[in-house]
Design a protein around this nucleic acid. Structure first.
Length: 105
DNA sequence: CCACTGACGAGTG
DNA sequence: GCACTCGCCAGTG
């Protein structure tokens, strides 16, 4: 596995319940600025049974990014977030100003 | 080696 | 808000 993936997974693991982070944000926190795509690639590679809170990562618009395989993952992600009391507006977007994770360090 | 494809994002018009 | 371009880079054929 690429070493970058481990850095990405470590950041995702820190996102607390009820909060979300964007792909670009995770990339920056992992010391990989500008490589948001790599985050999506890394998340696509984790096993389904992973305990990593992958559902707390959304795109820069605050929306859930659809996977190319057309699976039910987007609905699963939304349900998991709603179960953590993260709210979605009429456009399926989360207010990042409210729910974005802001790590102190 | 080249072309193409993505859980992306910033910038431009 | 929309469409588009460009930068990003691992993986695939």
């Amino acid at each position: 596995m690429a070493p970058s993936y481990s850095r990405i997974y470590r950041v995702v693991a820190r996102i607390p319940r009820g909060r979300v982070a964007t792909y670009g944000q995770v990339a920056r926190l992992a010391g990989l600025p500008g490589r948001a795509r790599l985050v999506g690639y890394a998340l696509a590679a984790i096993p389904d049974a992973s305990r990593l809170p992958w559902h707390r990562v959304v795109n820069a618009r605050g929306q859930i990014s659809l996977r190319s395989d057309g699976g039910p993952w987007d609905r699963i992600q939304r349900l998991r977030l709603e179960r953590e009391r993260v709210r979605f507006d009429g456009h399926g977007a989360i207010a990042l100003a409210v729910f974005r994770w802001r790590p102190r360090r």
